[in-house]
């Protein structure tokens, strides 16, 4: 029975993630005074990519790339409690935050190998940018996480959630704003949306890591992105918005956080790689450090 719930949860997150991607396109179209594609456009895109008649492959690692990505995404999702109901906790009860943070890079690094074997210099360039960006936003993110760990005196995700019980003023986003600010700025980098879409950058390096992928590969990557993106939002809801008692609540909270990178992305143009690193290691990290010191002295 547990397995059925697990599969249902993965499928639900997948459908919701693809829906959010489509909705994002619609909203950004409206902001730019366009009509925009229908909200279900991304389902069609994925279907089309899956049903492409031919695909090309550069070798075994190239084939395994999307598999790595999906493994990383679904594995991360399974370690994060979706809702506090018994069925949707999965393995989240043992969700140590450091384990989650290391599992999160599993897929990306596996995919990096695939992009490398694609032998397209743009792909390798994109990966090198992506890894630089990862190192950049990891600093404010870990600062935020460490403050939360200090507050809850635990690295377990379920303990961090239970520390936020009892009203929205107990949520860490309000209780620990100096942890929330760097972490949410790091979220912008994690999402790879506009100011930090350095690794993709279609106008500069032709979609970077994805340059050599088409057909079913690209379809799987879009699917994986939908799951991984939603998993990250769910992680943030658990960390800062006090988790959720039921799936509906979680869907609503994820939607709220999802709006933040979307709107920031619509306003700001792209950074250079070095600018992004300087940005993340500058003000957000400083805020996090101040928060850490304040919490330490208290």
């Amino acid at each position: 029975m547990n397995i059925v719930w697990t599969v249902l949860g993965i499928i639900g997150v997948y459908i919701y993630g693809v829906f959010l991607m489509g909705l994002g396109r619609k909203i950004s179209a409206r902001v730019q005074l366009r009509y925009g594609p229908p909200v279900y456009q991304n389902y069609i895109d994925i279907l089309k990519l899956w049903t492409k008649k031919t695909n090309i492959s550069h070798g075994i690692m190239f084939d395994l790339g999307p598999v790595f990505l999906l493994t990383g995404s679904i594995g991360t999702l399974l370690l994060i409690p979706i809702a506090a109901t018994e069925q949707l906790m999965y393995f989240g009860f043992s969700g140590d935050i450091i384990v989650i943070m290391y599992l999160m890079v599993f897929g990306s690094l596996g995919f990096a190998l695939a992009a490398s074997q694609g032998a397209n210099p743009f792909g390798i360039m994109g990966i090198s940018r992506a890894l630089t960006l990862l190192a950049a936003y990891e600093l404010p993110f870990i600062l935020g996480i460490v403050i939360l760990m200090m507050d809850a005196n635990s690295a377990s995700l379920s303990n961090i959630i239970s520390h936020q019980a009892g009203g929205y003023m107990n949520w860490y986003i309000f209780k620990q704003p100096l942890a929330a600010i760097p972490a949410f700025i790091a979220l912008l980098g994690m999402m790879g949306k506009q100011p930090f879409d350095i690794p993709i950058a279609p106008q500069e390096i032709a979609t970077g890591p994805m340059a050599e992928f088409g057909g079913k590969y690209l379809g799987m990557m879009m699917s994986s992105h939908a799951i991984f993106m939603t998993a990250k939002y769910i992680l943030f809801v658990n960390l800062f918005l006090g988790g959720a008692g039921n799936p509906i609540n979680m869907i609503f909270k994820v939607f709220l956080i999802w709006l933040f990178p979307l709107f920031v992305g619509l306003v700001y143009p792209r950074f250079k790689t070095s600018q992004a690193v300087r940005f993340f290691w500058g003000v957000p990290s400083l805020i996090g450090l101040i928060g850490l010191i304040i919490h330490w002295l208290r």
Binding site: R34, Y35, E212
Partner: peptide, 22 residues
């Protein structure tokens, strides 16, 4: 492509590389 005629409403979007294009 842009706001005036907006071809994206028909699901038509620019692709990055030949591998992805239809």
């Amino acid at each position: 492509m842009t706001s005036r005629y907006d071809m994206e409403r028909f699901g038509i979007a620019p692709a990055g590389t030949p591998r992805q294009a239809d």
